[in-house]
């Protein structure tokens, strides 16, 4: 079960498993972002390379207008994937948010 929801405060909340079957749903939400946005990972248990690809695509698009994603509240296992993939240089990851 994967859920991606825009929250009232402008953040985007992720929960469940972000796998290759969820790419279209995620693109539909991330593709609408126009400004710097926090992505709250606190409910996310798992992300695969397909999920990383969705976020990377949104980040690239936003970066063209000087904006970007701020990734917050990742669990340790998900955080480890970003570290292994060396995506820390691509995204702003705020471990203390």
């Amino acid at each position: 079960m994967f859920v991606i929801t825009p929250a009232d405060n402008g953040d985007v909340l992720l929960s469940g498993r972000f796998d290759a079957a969820q790419v279209d749903r995620a693109d539909a939400v991330l593709g609408r972002l126009q400004t710097t946005t926090r992505i709250d990972f606190s409910g996310l248990e798992y992300i695969s390379s397909a999920g990383l690809g969705c976020l990377l695509k949104a980040q690239k698009r936003l970066a063209q207008s000087g904006h970007g994603l701020i990734l917050i509240r990742m669990n340790k296992l998900v955080r480890d994937i970003f570290r292994m993939a060396r995506l820390e240089v691509v995204f702003r990851i705020d471990d203390d948010a």
């Binding site: 390379s49 397909a50 990383l52 690809g53 690239k60 970066a63 691509v90």
Partner: peptide, 8 residues
């Protein structure tokens, strides 16, 4: 660099 990164 970011603009050239691809996930494949």
């Amino acid at each position: 660099p970011l603009q050239e990164r691809r996930i494949g």
